[in-house]
Design a protein around this nucleic acid. Structure first.
Lengths: 235, 235
DNA sequence: CATCGTTGGATTGTTGAACAATACTGCAAT
DNA sequence: ATTGCAGTATTGTTCAACAATCCAACGATG
């Protein structure tokens, strides 16, 4: 053996090869289902049915539930069961406040961000445009998510990244609540393009300005549709 | 009965009277223990011992573990058990990046924040000064936490608030890792006072400047002490 | 002497069954 | 229209068991 073991350092980190428990695997599955809308907001997840369907014990399933409820994707109601989260109008406002608090400063500070981070913003833009060209509305939504994830990544903190992912997952849930048609995603692609353009030009303030308008417009659109819906539900 | 039922609206909201499960109660306990340092970073939490001590089944205890591991206060290592999180030097840097990303913009946007939020910042400052007057170092640390929690609250998002709490809890863990003496908290009180002063004067930029220096100093102090410690641990 | 294979004991991972506690539905009574 | 009261379904929690895995100790090997 050599005295130095830099070849060992090149190997995948422990975090990449960690064996996962059943609870985590089930949680990963359910998380994907919820984000993809296959499990509609408000739906109750029966312990008995799910444990039978996925061949895990009720106890293991409940561990998975605990994980996801801390992510706000599921809500635990005592003696009633766990349900897919069902965001309200107030949640929408809170989510956008959170995004403003995170994304805007991240963009404004982009001058100090390393080049690859900006590049991945551009990649997300292009992925979105390509999805649009192929009329793949689902992939378009994913690309939009990645775009904003990339914006959050400019803050250069793994914890902020995770928080962003969580907030964006919840935001996607909002779309599912109203079975948002593609028109909701549609007008935002050019915005993403402009934001990225301003970023590469080094004009962070212009990028922040565009982003701010984007967020305001999106929130406005969602909240009006939401209050409309909630009013209709009351009658 | 009257036609209006505003007297019902005055009652505590469901969130305040919700019955809690054992798993949540145990999680609350453990969380408090971890934050208070009664459970030292790196310590392993034996399922058998804890379940016996707190009269809950192993399964229930595991549910609590799942909750806390998603908060990064515990880490789950497959087939090895759960341990109190033991932040590294890299974690310290990430935590401070996250705090910069959140607190600085929150302070800069304080002009649009409602009055009571600024007041609670002041309250935290005074609580800290009073604790200092009474040489209650423990309460001083708590007050400092509340101070920065109050800064984060300027963003006006419940989700950001929760994230801040989590980040600050982890930061407190960092102090426990090195059994930080009171000198670590000591010089920061005047800074808090100045930040609050600038805020009430409406000079958000000055406040942000002070906060930025505070964070840089604190991070510097912690990371040097940390790398020192980690180097010592290797020998 | 450092490394590797093996073995035994301890702990976690997961399950299935059981029972208690609670919520929900429907119906009768007021 | 509200209240009271079944009966039923589901969750909350425990327990005991077993499989899977880690870990420390001990020797074997080069």
């Amino acid at each position: 053996m050599t005295a130095t073991d830099d070849h060992i350092d090149r190997l995948p980190t422990p975090a990449m090869v960690r064996a996962t428990s059943q609870a985590e695997r089930v949680a990963d599955m359910l998380r994907a289902f919820v984000i993809d809308g296959e499990l509609a907001p408000g739906v109750r997840l029966s312990e008995e049915k799910l444990s039978r369907k996925y061949q895990v014990s009720r106890n293991t399933l409940r561990e998975a539930f605990r994980l996801l409820s801390r992510e706000r994707l599921l809500v635990h109601r005592m003696h009633r069961g766990v349900f897919v989260a069902h965001p309200t109008g107030e949640d929408v406002r809170d989510l956008f406040n959170a995004r403003r608090a995170l994304e805007l400063p991240a963009v404004r500070g982009a001058a100090h961000a390393p080049e690859p981070l900006i590049r991945s913003v551009g990649a997300a833009v292009e992925a979105g445009e390509q999805a649009r060209a192929e009329s793949d509305w689902w992939r378009m939504g994913s690309a939009n998510m990645h775009f904003h994830e990339a914006l959050g990544a400019l803050a250069q903190s793994a914890r902020v990244d995770e928080f962003m992912r969580q907030v964006l997952a919840e935001t996607r849930l909002v779309f599912h609540v109203m079975a948002a048609p593609r028109e909701f995603h549609d007008p935002y692609l050019p915005w993403n393009r402009r934001i990225h353009l301003a970023l590469t030009a080094g004009d962070t303030e212009a990028a922040a300005e565009e982003l701010s308008e984007y967020l305001a417009t999106s929130e406005e659109q969602l909240t009006t549709a939401f209050t409309e819906m909630e009013r209709a539900a009351r009658d």
